[in-house]
Each structure stands twice: as C-alpha cells, then as structure tokens.
C-alpha cells in the first residue's frame, strides 16, 4: 500500500472500475503536495455524466483535498502544488492558459458549513449571474433567482422574503440557499464538500432528496463522512485511504461486496 516514490512509479493499484463511458471529468495521475507532504497520490478516476459520485474515507484521507482540485480551489492555498491531468470535457483544467474564473462557473462548489453572503436572499442567488453578466435585465435576473431557488427547493419557503438577509435563515435553508447560489450560474458539475455535516437529520434528508433531483441536470461529486448518505444518494462510490484511491465502483457493489481489504474494514467499522 506504500507508494514507491523513489522510482516515481505508481505503487498502489486502485481496484474496481475507474473508467466510465463518456465521462464528464477525467482525472489521470493526480498528485497533490502541501509543501513536502504528499497528500494525494497518483489518483486516476472518471466522473460520469448526470450521476452522483461519493467520496468516502477516514478523516485526513485526502477526499476533500481531491475534490478541491476539481475546480482549482486549492490554488488559493499557499505552498499547495498539483500535478497530473484533470480533464473537463476534454480540456485539461490545469493547462497554463485556463482561466479559473470561468472554470469555477462551470464547476461550482458547496461547502461544509453553509456560507451565504451577509446580503439579502435575492442578492445571494443573483450574485453569480450578475458578475458573469448572464442576465440582460432585471426580469431575466428575477427569473434566474426564481428558477435556482425552485431547483434548490427553497422557493416556497422564501418567496415572500427575498429581501431578508441570507444569514437569517436556518442552517438547512442556508445550505439550500448556497446550492441555489451555485446552480444559478448553470454549472456542469457541482462539488459538495460534506454539505450536511453541520445540519440536523431533517435538513439532511431534504438536502439528500435535493441532490437526487439535481442529478438530472448536473454531475455531482459529494464528499461525505456518512456511509449511509453515500449509499443513499450516490451511484458510484470512491474510497480514499491515506491519499490513495483504494477502490471505485458502483455504490451497491462497493457497500455489499467490497473488493479491497481496506474498503471492507472501513465499511464494517473496523476503523474510521
């Protein structure tokens, strides 16, 4: 299981089906270093269209680090270095001439803690379309806001108080507002970094339901601590361990019949 760094060879073989037909994103030999620390080791995985892929693994295994590579959020961390290839529809997002601003419009992100802007609900959702110039006039902008809130399942709850502060909502509503804000710029992929870890079970259930609906429009990558959640919402599951991608496969198969010993240990609760 150790990576053989002296030869630069991949010392660890991922088991399962890393490849899918007609993927939205393709990662090849991705490595992430924080200074001297090798945080992600030679990861190769495909992310299929209009499906949910869950990243699971014990704390510190690198799953969050990995999805932050997918829209280059790691760029903001000093001393962080990424090598390898990540293709979004055949374009390497780590190419030198790639601009991260449109990339992040295409690959949106929802964070662990709900982080609405301290502005009105309307402005929160309208912010993305505004800065990207998506709406020609007020009416179009209103439509963006309404559609996004509806897709995020929040419209009925907030349609009468769009001018209220986004921070006045409950935790679950805030997280759905953040999802609405993300989908307002019509991304192709949505990254979710433990989106329910700060929420109560009812809010969690709502978000999970929402994820399932969103799958028809978007490709979703979700990092989660909860194996039940992964089992409930995802079609494919990837198991990370100490920076290595151990196993990838159809969710049902991974959970019922794990092929790797480490995956099995994790799923049966030996550690983690």
């Amino acid at each position: 299981m150790e990576t053989n760094e002296s030869t630069g060879q991949k010392g660890f073989q991922t088991v399962g089906e890393t490849k899918v037909e007609n993927p939205r994103m393709t990662c090849r030999d991705v490595n992430v270093y924080y200074g001297d620390k090798h945080a992600i080791k030679h990861v190769g995985i495909d992310i299929g269209r209009n499906q949910v892929i869950a990243m699971i693994g014990p704390s510190g295994c690198g799953k969050s680090t990995f999805i932050r590579c997918l829209n280059r959020m790691n760029d903001t961390i000093p001393r962080c270095r990424v090598t390898g290839e990540i293709l979004l529809d055949d374009t390497n997002i780590y190419d030198r001439d790639i601009d991260v601003v449109p990339l992040r419009a295409q690959v949106g992100m929802v964070f662990q803690k709900p982080n609405p802007f301290p502005k009105s609900i309307y402005d929160n959702v309208a912010y993305g379309p505004r800065i990207h110039g998506l709406a020609q006039n007020k009416a179009e902008l209103d439509e963006y806001v309404e559609t996004s809130l509806k897709r995020a399942g929040l419209w009925e709850e907030v349609k009468d108080r769009l001018d209220h502060s986004g921070t006045s909502l409950s935790g679950g509503q805030q997280q759905r507002l953040c999802i609405a804000r993300t989908i307002a710029v019509s991304p192709e992929v949505i990254l979710m970094d433990e989106p329910c870890s700060a929420l109560d079970p009812i809010a969690t259930a709502k978000i999970e339901g929402l994820i399932d609906e969103l799958r028809t429009h978007y490709t979703i990558v979700i990092v989660t601590h909860s194996m039940q959640q992964a089992a409930r919402v995802s079609q494919r599951t990837a198991y990370f361990h100490m920076g290595d991608l151990v196993e990838v496969g159809i969710t049902d198969k991974v959970f019922t019949n794990p092929r790797h010993k480490l995956t099995e240990d994790y799923i049966t609760g030996r550690f983690g």
């Binding site: 959020m73 903001t76 992040r104 992100m109 802007f117 301290p118 800065i131």
Partner: peptide
C-alpha cells in the same frame, strides 16, 4: 473576515478582485 466568505465568492466564479471588493 471569515475565509468561508472568500471561498463562497470564489466558488461561484468571482475573480480575486471581485471577491475582495464585493465581499
């Protein structure tokens, strides 16, 4: 200013400058 605000803005595709001056 909490870093989550910066991440939120960067996450929807705001440029560095927009992140700083809008939020």
């Amino acid at each position: 200013v909490p870093p989550s605000i910066r991440q939120a803005a960067l996450g929807v595709g705001a440029s560095k400058m927009q992140t700083v001056f809008h939020h």
